[in-house]
């Protein structure tokens, strides 16, 4: 087992916990959504990186090539990206509605207003 061989996992995990930290620690709702986006993007990496073969090529069958990357994670992540942006739009719409109802997108302000 070599630590260098696991570097892609460690990078993925650090991006993941950075996203998790932003979601939990920041009170601004748009910043939270950006954090959620980072978390989501790190999952793309978690899926795609193990499918890579060094020296291989993209999974488009052609004469003269024999080593291809694993196509299955690509399919799963391709759809995940588009669904991700659709749900992001839904989240932003909720943020806009919250802003209109409470006049703020800071979690602390919203909670304070709710307690009144």
């Amino acid at each position: 087992m070599s630590l260098a061989g696991h570097f892609s996992y460690f990078a993925t995990i650090s991006l993941m916990i950075a996203g998790l930290f932003i979601v939990m620690a920041r009170g601004n709702l748009i910043k939270k959504l950006v954090g959620l986006g980072i978390f989501q993007t790190s999952v793309y990496l978690l899926y795609v990186a193990p499918g890579k073969l060094i020296g291989g090529t993209a999974p488009i069958i052609q004469e003269g090539f024999a080593v291809y990357a694993n196509p299955l994670p690509h399919v799963l992540i391709l759809t995940a990206i588009v669904v991700g942006v659709a749900t992001l739009a839904l989240g932003l719409a909720l943020v806009v509605r919250i802003r209109e109802a409470y006049g703020s997108i800071e979690e602390d302000d919203i909670l304070a207003k709710d307690r009144e």
Partner: peptide, 19 residues
């Protein structure tokens, strides 16, 4: 479907005035 959804979402956000 994807073109429709993306454009519709954009129109919804762009057509809304700031309070």
């Amino acid at each position: 479907a994807v073109t429709g959804v993306m454009l519709k979402v954009f129109y919804m956000f762009a057509g809304r005035g700031n309070l």
